Simulated assay, not measured.
Amino acid sequence: MRTYKKTLIGSTLLLILLLMSCLYPYYGPIDFNHQVLVKDEHGKIIDRAPFPPSEKHWLGTTRNGEDLHWLLLYGAKFTLITAFSVAVLRVLLGGIFGMFLSLWAPFLKSYFNDFFLSMRYIPSILIAYILMKSIVGAPNDVAITSIVTYQLIILVFIGFPSVTLFASDITDELLKTSFVQSSYLLGAGKLHIVRRQLLPYMRSYGILFTVQQIISTLQITMQLSIFGLFLGGINRAGIFGYDDAEDRPKPASLSNEWAGLIGQNFTEFVLSPWIVFVPVFGFFLVIVIVNMIKKELEDNILGIQTMKMKRNKKEVPLSVKIPSKGKFDLIN
């Protein structure tokens, strides 16, 4: 019996983090424990944000004086929900279209492959940057829901071709197996083949590939944030404290999701390194957990599928089993 201990532990940790983030309005401060200036008893300013980690500010604060650990808890839901939603949509839409290409329109597969061939040689971040820059590159009057919807569509579109071709290739291999060919010979239709023969295998591969796409989505959102393209758009208030940005504050993430916190603060590496390292460490920890789940699923699911394939090939019908010599029963 194969176990999924790492998957259960990792999924539980991510679920707890997601619930804590979703419930943040019920226990967290609205202003993220905002504090910009520190004054003595005489009212003289003795210090100003950003503040390093301390007993009062566990993970330090940003230049706007907001506690980083509150920001991380608040923004975790946007990071996790976006990554999971994009991954599920990629696998669901790509899987359905991939099986359609192999079963009902195999002549279109070569055209589909040629049409998206350029995406194999052009970095995904470049395509996403070009498509997103016009709508989320600067503050504007576009509604937040429109920006988020557009970003999700672009993120799904970037991974759709690879998932489609992956699903189509798996379908082609399964169609060549003996048990599928036997179903065809017995008169089974394509819908029956999909329901009874393909889906049991595609579900396992779909779960594994969904986890892989979560990692891919996390990576590309972090890369986009370096170029100032934040999920949900830009906060008009921005980041203050820069001498050369008095008229126009430095852009900041509106949703405070983790990739945005990294992108808006990566220039603080020398002056206030904790502002960068804290969200980077959180982002890295999530990727490690998801990668741990992916590794265990690969070892277990692919191993199970291999055993099933071998069993189907080696199975012998009962009617051809021959009794050994000396083991006949005499019947009166």
Score class of each variant (00 low, 15 high):
1 M>G: 10
2 R>S: 13
4 Y>T: 13
9 I>A: 00
17 L>E: 10
26 Y>H: 03
26 Y>C: 04
27 Y>N: 06
29 P>W: 02
29 P>C: 02
32 F>S: 06
35 Q>V: 12
37 L>C: 08
39 K>F: 12
40 D>Q: 01
46 I>N: 10
48 R>S: 11
49 A>H: 06
50 P>G: 03
52 P>V: 12
53 P>D: 06
57 H>C: 13
61 T>G: 03
64 N>G: 13
69 H>Y: 11
69 H>F: 04
81 I>K: 11
82 T>G: 11
83 A>H: 08
83 A>D: 01
84 F>I: 13
86 V>T: 07
88 V>M: 08
93 L>S: 04
99 M>K: 05
101 L>E: 06
106 P>N: 15
107 F>N: 14
107 F>D: 11
107 F>A: 15
112 F>I: 03
117 L>T: 11
117 L>M: 15
119 M>I: 14
121 Y>S: 15
128 A>S: 12
130 I>P: 09
132 M>P: 05
135 I>D: 10
141 D>G: 12
151 Q>E: 10
152 L>I: 14
152 L>C: 14
153 I>W: 02
153 I>V: 03
156 V>H: 12
161 P>Y: 07
164 T>Y: 03
164 T>A: 08
166 F>V: 12
170 I>K: 10
173 E>R: 12
174 L>C: 13
174 L>R: 04
178 S>E: 09
183 S>I: 00
183 S>E: 02
184 Y>D: 00
191 L>P: 13
192 H>T: 09
192 H>K: 12
193 I>M: 08
197 Q>H: 01
198 L>R: 04
199 L>W: 01
199 L>R: 09
202 M>K: 01
202 M>V: 07
210 T>Y: 02
211 V>T: 14
211 V>C: 10
212 Q>D: 05
217 T>H: 01
218 L>V: 11
224 L>W: 11
224 L>P: 12
225 S>I: 06
226 I>A: 08
227 F>N: 05
227 F>T: 04
228 G>A: 02
229 L>P: 07
234 I>S: 00
235 N>D: 10
236 R>D: 09
236 R>I: 15
238 G>Q: 04
238 G>V: 05
241 G>W: 06
244 D>K: 11
246 E>V: 15
247 D>W: 14
248 R>D: 15
255 S>C: 06
258 W>H: 08
260 G>A: 04
263 G>V: 04
263 G>R: 04
269 F>H: 08
269 F>W: 11
271 L>F: 07
271 L>N: 07
275 I>V: 15
275 I>K: 03
277 F>Q: 08
278 V>D: 03
280 V>R: 01
281 F>S: 03
285 L>E: 00
286 V>I: 11
292 M>P: 06
292 M>Q: 14
294 K>E: 03
296 E>G: 12
302 L>N: 07
312 N>C: 12
312 N>K: 12
312 N>V: 09
314 K>E: 15
315 E>L: 01
321 K>R: 08
325 K>Q: 09
328 F>W: 04
330 L>T: 09
